[in-house]
Design a protein around this nucleic acid. Structure first.
Length: 212
DNA sequence: ACATCGATCTACT
DNA sequence: GTAGATCGATGTA
């Protein structure tokens, strides 16, 4: 497949692209803190993706923490082919198929051997919005990336992105200096097992979350 | 081998 | 409000 060159014979890249693309990745150490703290700290950070079709970016407005001893965590019953990335290096992506149809993106936390991660549940679209609209078949901005399955479809993420290094690869999480306002901590969504904990975090005043 | 359910979303009634 | 899409993991036989 031909890689598209965005600087020759076409309009120059957006200023947004240049800005976001040059931002520093969150370091591996960021992902080595307590997983619940990482989930909270990821609110306001930016996901950037150099997709085959162009550059996309979105601000994280909703996350959930999954700990290794939590029955709702895929890793709680040991390593499998699907969840192996969770047991690998921190700062990597764990992408899995859910309900046979949708993909979910996680950021792996904790040292190798411990299966913990943060589910990225919703983004505020920032760049490459036209491509997200095409991928989703949906043009309302507040409904574009407002759910874990939705944002993966908007970005075009799938099994091939499982295990990517979020600090160096085409898929990164960066800090643009944005200061998150009030963050809500509530029960997670779609959990049927165990006693639930307030491990879902979202930007309180955001219009881009999956659910208030 | 077969049945059940899941960190979801859409399209219906 | 709820049925259906449909893969991977798990539990029962």
């Amino acid at each position: 497949m031909m890689k598209q060159n965005r600087t020759i014979g076409a309009a120059p890249a957006d200023m947004d692209d240049i800005q976001f693309a040059s931002l520093p990745s969150l370091p591996v150490e960021f992902y080595l803190n307590n997983t619940v703290d990482v989930a909270r700290a990821l609110i306001g950070k930016v996901i950037t993706y150099n997709a085959p079709e162009g550059f996309m970016a979105g601000r994280i407005v909703e996350t959930e923490a999954y700990l290794s001893d939590d029955p709702a965590c895929h890793a709680s019953r040991g390593i499998t082919k699907r969840n192996a990335a969770m047991f690998g290096n921190p700062g990597r992506a764990y992408v899995y198929l859910i309900y046979g149809i949708y993909y979910c993106l996680n950021a792996v936390t904790s040292p190798p051997g411990i299966g913990e991660a943060v589910l990225i549940r919703a983004l505020e679209p920032l760049a490459g919005i036209d491509m997200m609209i095409t991928n989703r078949g949906e043009n309302r901005l507040t409904n574009l990336c407002s759910g874990p399955g939705k944002l993966c479809k908007a970005f075009g993420l799938n099994n091939s992105h499982n295990g990517l290094d979020l600090t160096t690869s085409v898929l990164r999480i960066v800090d643009d200096g944005y200061k998150a306002g009030d963050i809500s901590a509530v029960s997670r969504i779609g959990i049927s097992q165990a006693v639930e904990n307030p491990w879902r975090f979202y930007l309180s005043n955001s219009d881009f979350v999956s659910k208030k």
